[in-house]
Write a protein that binds this DNA or RNA. Sequence first.
DNA 1: AAGATAAACGAATGTTCGTTCTTTTAAAAA
DNA 2: TTTTTAAAAGAACGAACATTCGTTTATCTT
Lengths: 195, 195
Amino acid sequence: MRLRDENKETLIREQAIALIVQEGFDGLSMQKLAKAANLSASTIYIYFKSREDLLNQVYIAVDEIFAKEVLKNFDPAMSFEEGLWQQWKNRYKYVQKYPLHYHFSEQFRNSPLIKHQDIKESPFRVAMQQFTKNAIQRKEIVDLPPEILWALAYGPFYILIKFHLDQSSMSGKPFSLSEQKMKQAFGLVIKALKA
Amino acid sequence: MRLRDENKETLIREQAIALIVQEGFDGLSMQKLAKAANLSASTIYIYFKSREDLLNQVYIAVDEIFAKEVLKNFDPAMSFEEGLWQQWKNRYKYVQKYPLHYHFSEQFRNSPLIKHQDIKESPFRVAMQQFTKNAIQRKEIVDLPPEILWALAYGPFYILIKFHLDQSSMSGKPFSLSEQKMKQAFGLVIKALKA
DNA sequence: AAGATAAACGAATGTTCGTTCTTTTAAAAA
DNA sequence: TTTTTAAAAGAACGAACATTCGTTTATCTT
C-alpha cells in the first residue's frame, strides 16, 4: 500500500498560508490551493477533512513552531531583563524567519475563525508564568496583574514590529528593524517595569 | 424622481460590518447582506459599485467615526500626560460604543484588503504629530523616534483592550476594563516616557 | 512477481457566489 | 395630474465554490 506523505501535508499547509496572506481568507479556495500545491483538490481531503479543519490545523501547526522558536535560549529562571530581551529577540527572529506565518497568524487571530475557548496549559504558557512569577518574587519588577505586565512587556514590541512590517510592504524593501531601535524601546519598557 | 436614501447606505454598511464580525470576510456575500438589510441584492449595487468598493467604503466610514471620536476633548496643546490620558479614555469609549467597528477594523487592517499606500495627511494625524512635538519641545518626555514613542504610548493600551475583549467574548459577559486598571497601566507608560 | 491497499486523480455534484438585466415602483418636477 | 427619472426589485447569468465518487496508480507486504 501507499503511505501518507508527511511532506505533502506540510506543503498543503504552507501553500494555504501563502494564499491566505496574499488574498485573504476568501482568496483561499480548495481548487486554487490544489493548483498551487500541484495536487488534485480531492487529494487535500485525504489529509484534511474539510476546509475548516484545514484552517484549524494550519493555525495549530503555525502556533507550534512559534512556541518552539520563542523558547530558544530562554529559561524561566533568567533575570527579568535578560529573559524578556531574549523573548524580544526570539520574536523578532521568528517574524524574520516566518513572515508568512506571522501574517497568517495575525489574520487568523483577528478573525471569527479563532476559537479561544480552550486556552490549554501549553509548556510555553507554563514557562512564561513561571518567568514572571520569579521576577516579581525577586522584586526585579513591580507587582502587577499579569495582563498589565504582559501589556507593558510586549505591547510596544508588537506595535514596533507592525510599523516596520507595514513600512517594508509599502516600500517593497525587506523587513528590518535595527537592534538599536529595539534596544531603545526595550530600555523604556524596563524603565517602566523596574521595581 | 426618487432620491438616494442616505440612511440606506449606512444601513448596508452597518449590516456588512455585523456580518463580517460574525462570520469573517468569506461570510460576507451580497445575497446574505441583502437579506440582512431587507433589500434586493441588486439594490446594493446602486450604492456601491462592487463588493470590493463596499468593503473599502465601509472601512473609510469606520475610520472617519474613529477619528472624530478620538479627538473629542483633545487639544494638541495639552500637556503630554493629560493629552495621552484623554486619548486612552477616548479610545476606550470608542471600543465600548462601537465594538463591531473595532472588530471589523482589526480584521480589515490585518487582511490583505487594506491598501496602506496612501496615508493621507488627515486632521487626526496632524493633531497627533503636533501633540507629540509639543511634548518633546517642552521636555515633558524623552526625545524619541516617533514610532518608538507611539509604540510605548499605545502598545500596552491595545494589548489590554484585546485581552479584556477576548475575556468578555469567552465568558459572554459585556466588555469592561476598570478605570483603575487602565490608570495603573497608564502610570507605567508615563513612567517610561517621562524625561 | 502477485496481490492488497490506500493515495491520488479527474470528473461531476448541487450550491452559492458576484454581478447584470429587465421590469416595476415611488417620488420629485412639470 | 402627468411626466420624468432614478431607486428598488426579482429573475437570471456564468463562474467558482466545497465536497464526493468511481477509477487509476503507486508502493508496501507476501
